[in-house]
Simulated assay, not measured.
Amino acid sequence: MTATREELLLSRIRDVPDYPRRGVVFKDITPLLADPVAFGALTDALADSCARHGATKVVGLEARGFILGAPVAVRAGLGFIPVRKAGKLPGATLAQAYDLEYGTAEIEVHAEDLSPGDRVMVIDDVLATGGTAGAAIELIRRGGAEVVGIAVLMELGFLGGRARLEPALRGAPLEALLTL
Results as ranks from 00 to 15, higher is better:
H110S: 04
L46P: 08
M1C: 00
T56G: 02
D118K: 08
V72M: 05
P167H: 10
A76G: 09
E7C: 04
A63R: 00
G23N: 09
K85Y: 08
V74W: 01
L156S: 02
P90H: 10
G87S: 09
D35M: 09
G117K: 05
V147N: 00
P17Q: 01
V25T: 15
H110M: 06
I150V: 15
V109F: 03
K57P: 04
A73W: 12
G79P: 12
I13S: 02
A3F: 04
T132C: 07
D99K: 15
D35R: 06
P167Q: 10
D113L: 14
A70N: 13
V37P: 07
E155P: 02
D15Q: 13
D35N: 05
T129K: 10
E146S: 01
D99M: 11
E7A: 15
L42E: 03
A70M: 15
A41Y: 04
G130I: 15
R84L: 06
T129D: 07
D15L: 06
H110W: 09
G91P: 08
T56H: 02
T129P: 12
G143Q: 05
D125T: 01
A145I: 08
A34S: 15
R142S: 07
L169N: 09
D35F: 03
G131H: 04
G60F: 12
L169V: 03
A145T: 07
A105S: 09
I123D: 04
V109A: 12
A168K: 14
K27D: 02
V152H: 04
L33A: 08
G161Y: 05
K57Y: 09
F39Q: 07
R84S: 00
R21F: 14
G40N: 01
A45Y: 01
G143Y: 08
A151M: 04
L178A: 14
A47S: 08
T4E: 15
M1G: 14
T93I: 05
A111S: 11
A111W: 01
M121C: 13
F80M: 15
R170A: 13
I81C: 05
L156E: 02
A34H: 14
A45D: 03
V72F: 09
V72T: 11
L9K: 10
T30M: 15
P90A: 13
L127C: 00
Y102M: 08
L156D: 03
D118F: 13
E6T: 14
D18S: 03
E175H: 14
L139I: 00
S11Q: 01
G160R: 08
T2S: 15
P82S: 10
A34I: 12
G160K: 12
L78P: 03
G87R: 08
G60W: 09
F66D: 12
P36M: 05
G144H: 05
I107M: 11
E112R: 14
V59D: 08
D35H: 01
L61E: 05
G117D: 09
